[in-house]
Design a protein around this nucleic acid. Structure first.
Lengths: 110, 110
DNA sequence: CTGTATCCAGACTGATACTG
DNA sequence: CAGTATCAGTCTGGATACAG
């Protein structure tokens, strides 16, 4: 019986950049659809909706509907999602270091 | 002037799961094309080649050609690539914990 | 406000073949 | 061994429109 790769396992749950960026935001606290739509620069409603559903299905996020008019929906982290904080933190640290020490000293397109 | 998001910066350089899986392997030591082709389950020669080129262009990988017959090419980490180790490590840790404590069970232990 | 539905262009894959 | 080239079929993602 073949042992599963832990890195691949992780990537099966956060398999695109949108999920990483969504997590980045919700790690700071519960967020609404409209907020995420603006905060996750470049994402379409379709992709946001789809990724939120997948993350809810995978047990990373909780979805709470407030019975109000106009509609109010909040996405928050489950314990499983919260446990991903170190992954996002490591990316944040790396990105900060890159922006401070690397970018501009090399020719990399953004 | 708007501050760039470090997480998004990171995701601009490792923007798909192939790169993560390639990094995972090369972090253990220099690897050859054929090894990666087998190790990164599901990747095609085309995608492997493409991603290796992009990572080399972005300064993450070094490519070394040994003047031998048959050809021998080795991919290794640059310092910038090496600095990504904590990101992969955090994913590895998370994946291990997930496989041990979450998958197949209802209860989440954290 | 919070999404769904639809169309379509481009990205990706697998297969196959071929080169140095 | 280490790729590149090409084709066809599939899937993803963006744009747009619209609904509850």
């Amino acid at each position: 019986m073949k042992k599963q790769c832990p890195v691949a396992t992780t990537m099966n749950l956060i398999d695109n950049k949108w999920k990483i960026l969504i997590l980045r935001d919700i790690l700071k606290g519960p967020k609404r659809f409209g907020f995420l739509k603006k905060s996750v620069v470049g994402i379409s409603s379709k992709m946001l909706s789809q990724n939120l559903h997948e993350m809810e299905r995978d047990g990373i996020l909780n979805r709470k509907v407030f019975p109000e008019v106009p509609p109010h929906v909040e996405y928050s982290l489950s314990p499983l999602g919260e446990s991903m904080r170190p992954i996002i933190r490591s990316m944040e640290k790396w990105g900060n270091n890159y922006l401070e020490n690397v970018k501009g000293k090399q020719q990399i397109k953004f």
